[in-house]
């Protein structure tokens, strides 16, 4: 797989120099396009409101960390991050726990209605959150789970469980069945085989599924905002606080935005070597 690139440059090197440059130009332009809006947000977060509204500059003239201090010292602000992290982690754990055995069943066995069930699961990934917002609100209110982390975590299972099953099934299909059979002959029970032998084999698949669950739960706002009011309010909803009677507090808004990018950036940094393979969801 990886040796695909080893030979190519050596053979084409003499005449491919301009080509390499054009590649670099394309990538530089694209990455610049991606980074500019983010840079602008960081830039704004380091300015005072007077500077933001008063003058236009490409970088902060009077560097200030005031906006970040505001967020990190006010409980109403930083609890938003804590709440978001709690339900995202809960959701990832629940999604993986139920998706693992199901994906195993789909990848190994034919059973009554398996194909229909699989498509039905996927249809839940296609359900617009806007359709479910109100019914979810009523459902969780009626069972007393409104404004709890578990409510948001369960609601996000709607789209994360099908996705996790789909991803894991792709990875499990790549594991030869002989391994299962050998393990059973060696006297492993299903549970022990699954945890001790099978799960390490698809570790990268589990990582990718966890990454996607984290990603889609972290970025979602409509459901998490609808299902919470105070105690479990996500950071994304807290950000609306910056719009006050005196107009928008742009500096704090930008700083809050920058801080929501940080957890994602950290996660990406840790999985950077698996991203390319992982994004193919085990299908190449």
């Amino acid at each position: 797989m990886t040796d695909a690139t080893a030979l190519t440059p050596a053979v084409t090197k003499p005449r491919s120099l301009p080509k390499v440059n054009s590649r670099a130009v394309v990538m530089t332009l694209y990455l610049l396009f991606l980074m500019l809006p983010i840079y602008w947000l960081i830039n704004m977060s380091l300015k005072t409101n007077t500077e933001i509204l008063g003058s236009f500059s490409l970088w902060p003239q009077n560097l200030t960390f005031e906006n970040y201090v505001t967020i990190l010292t006010d409980e109403a602000w930083y609890m938003g991050y804590v709440n978001s992290m709690i339900y995202v982690v809960m959701n990832t754990v629940i999604s993986l726990a139920v998706a693992l055995p199901a994906a195993y069943a789909f990848s190994r066995y034919n059973f009554l209605g398996d194909k229909h069930l699989f498509f039905w699961l996927l249809t839940n990934r296609m359900a617009p959150p806007a359709v479910f917002a109100l019914p979810f609100f009523q459902l969780y209110s009626s069972i007393g789970l409104f404004d709890t982390h578990i409510a948001v975590a369960l609601a996000h299972c709607l789209f994360n469980v099908p996705l996790a099953v789909w991803i894991l099934e792709g990875f499990m299909r790549g594991v030869p069945k002989e391994i299962d059979e050998t393990a059973y002959i060696d006297g492993y029970g299903f549970g022990r085989f699954f945890v001790k032998i099978f799960m390490p084999l698809i570790a990268s698949g589990i990582g990718v599924a966890a990454f996607f669950c984290f990603m889609f739960s972290w970025v979602e706002l409509l459901l998490s905002r609808t299902l919470t009011s105070v105690d479990a309010k996500p950071i994304a909803a807290t950000m609306t606080r910056t719009v006050g009677a005196a107009g928008v507090d742009w500096g704090v808004l930008a700083a809050a935005g920058v801080l929501t990018i940080v957890p994602g950036a950290l996660v990406i940094y840790f999985v950077r070597n698996y991203i390319a393979k992982g994004f193919a969801l085990g299908r190449v």
């Binding site: 991606l34 990603m215 972290w218 970025v219 950036a265």
Partner: peptide, 9 residues
């Protein structure tokens, strides 16, 4: 990076 930014951000 853009994929992991909350949608309202």
């Amino acid at each position: 990076l853009p994929l992991l930014i909350p949608w309202n951000v």
